[in-house]
């Protein structure tokens, strides 16, 4: 690091490198980009990071990220309040809400059951979901955890807890993605697509 004899530059690179998906080279490129930018732009960026960090928190009802607690989705009167969609991360809400096909409420459980990472049911927001189902007039819970092993295991675990409460439990459909090609699909995906076929 003799080429950078500026402690502040090294500090900036080190901080940028801590972000997910940012390696040493990218951190270096970003640091030099920031140094070349106008001071006003850099201040704007630093200000927005700080502002977001200070204002955004987790919704105390659904654990979505929000500036106002409870969040806009939880307080909306236009949404179907008998329907809850369970997702793993707040980012999943954005993806599902952008479809415009779902008008119910959400609940973020903050991950999925992953024994190899030491994440069990007690580390997730499952207890809060069950309390919510008990308190609110929920008729159906749609489990939208990721279609991977951990997501499936979490879905099965949730359904075992929710079904005895007399609430309908459904899972997002699985199978062929739009624009995909049959010849490249693997056996498991194809088998799911056949199981989940629908009448035309």
């Amino acid at each position: 690091m003799e080429s950078y004899n500026n402690a502040s530059l090294i500090k900036l690179i080190n901080e940028l490198e801590k972000m997910p998906g940012i390696g040493p080279k990218t951190a270096q490129r970003l640091a030099f980009y920031l140094l070349k930018s106008e001071k006003a732009d850099v201040e704007k960026l630093a200000g927005s990071i700080l502002e977001a960090k200070e204002k955004i928190k987790y919704c105390s009802v659904c654990f979505n990220m929000t500036e106002i607690d409870p969040c806009a989705i939880c307080t909306s009167l236009r949404r179907d309040r008998s329907l809850i969609c369970v997702v793993e991360e707040p980012m999943d809400i954005v993806a599902l809400d952008n479809t415009g096909a779902f008008k119910g409420l959400f609940h973020v459980i903050m991950g999925s059951i992953s024994p190899l990472d030491g994440i069990g049911p007690e580390d997730l927001k499952i207890r809060e979901l069950l309390i919510r189902i008990g308190k609110e007039n929920i008729k159906e819970v749609i489990i939208a955890t990721n279609p991977d092993v951990a997501g499936e295991a979490t879905a099965i675990y949730l359904s075992k807890l929710i079904k005895p409460l007399g609430v309908k439990v459904s899972r997002l459909a699985q199978g062929m993605p739009m624009g995909g090609s049959l010849e490249y699909a693997d056996e498991v995906t194809l088998a799911r697509a056949i199981e989940g076929r629908r009448e035309l």
Binding site: S114, P115, L116, G118, I119, E122, Y157
Partner: peptide
């Protein structure tokens, strides 16, 4: 994983 298994 053994602790999580007991929980599950």
């Amino acid at each position: 994983s053994m602790r999580v298994m007991e929980e599950i």
